[in-house]
């Protein structure tokens, strides 16, 4: 798999959808391609957030360490972006991500990612839009779950 195919994967990520191909290429080029064996951790809850990952192949699960034992909260598959919240909010990892089968991912270094955001407003706007969308979704979910407006 080469840079070009990784760029295609990145395009599938909602956050990067509207970004210029040459910028995506830069993002891909400055990222590392890493292979995880089954059961290997991308990162663990409480680690310092140093990178985001785009899963190129395989799948992984997001696990929360609860006092009662690990709880699986989400499943990730191809072209999913994970760990980006941590590097944007500069807080430790809020969950553990484990590969559930042999997977490969693009590791986007935090420093590089922030550097690119500060350099290309287009990318910042894309990220903001994505975050705003998520917030809206979350609000909607909250609204639908709560019995009546507070």
């Amino acid at each position: 798999m080469t840079l070009d195919s990784e760029v295609l994967s990145l395009r599938q990520v909602p956050m990067f959808r509207d970004i210029d191909p040459s910028r995506l290429k830069l993002l891909a080029f400055t990222s590392e391609r890493i292979h995880f064996a089954k059961g290997q951790r991308f990162f663990s809850q409480g680690d310092a957030a140093d990178a985001a990952y785009v899963i190129l192949d395989g799948c992984a699960e997001v696990v929360l360490d609860n006092p009662g034992g690990p709880v699986k909260v989400a499943e990730l598959g191809r072209n999913d972006l994970v760990g980006e919240m941590g590097i944007l909010s500069d807080s430790p990892r809020s969950a553990t991500v484990i590969a559930t089968e042999p997977s490969s991912a693009l590791r986007i270094d935090k420093r590089v990612f922030l550097e690119l955001l500060s350099q290309f407003p287009q990318m910042s706007i894309a990220v903001m839009r994505e975050l705003a969308n998520r917030l809206e979704r979350t609000n909607a979910q909250l609204l639908s779950r709560s019995p009546r407006p507070v």
């Binding site: 840079l3 040459s22 830069l26 080029f29 400055t30 590089v112 550097e115 350099q119 290309f120």
Partner: peptide, 20 residues
Amino acid sequence: ETMVDIFKGLPLGHPLFDQF
């Protein structure tokens, strides 16, 4: 070619240059 393509928009002296 690739370098010219992907690094073109970056201002000179940007840290990404030296690193990558």
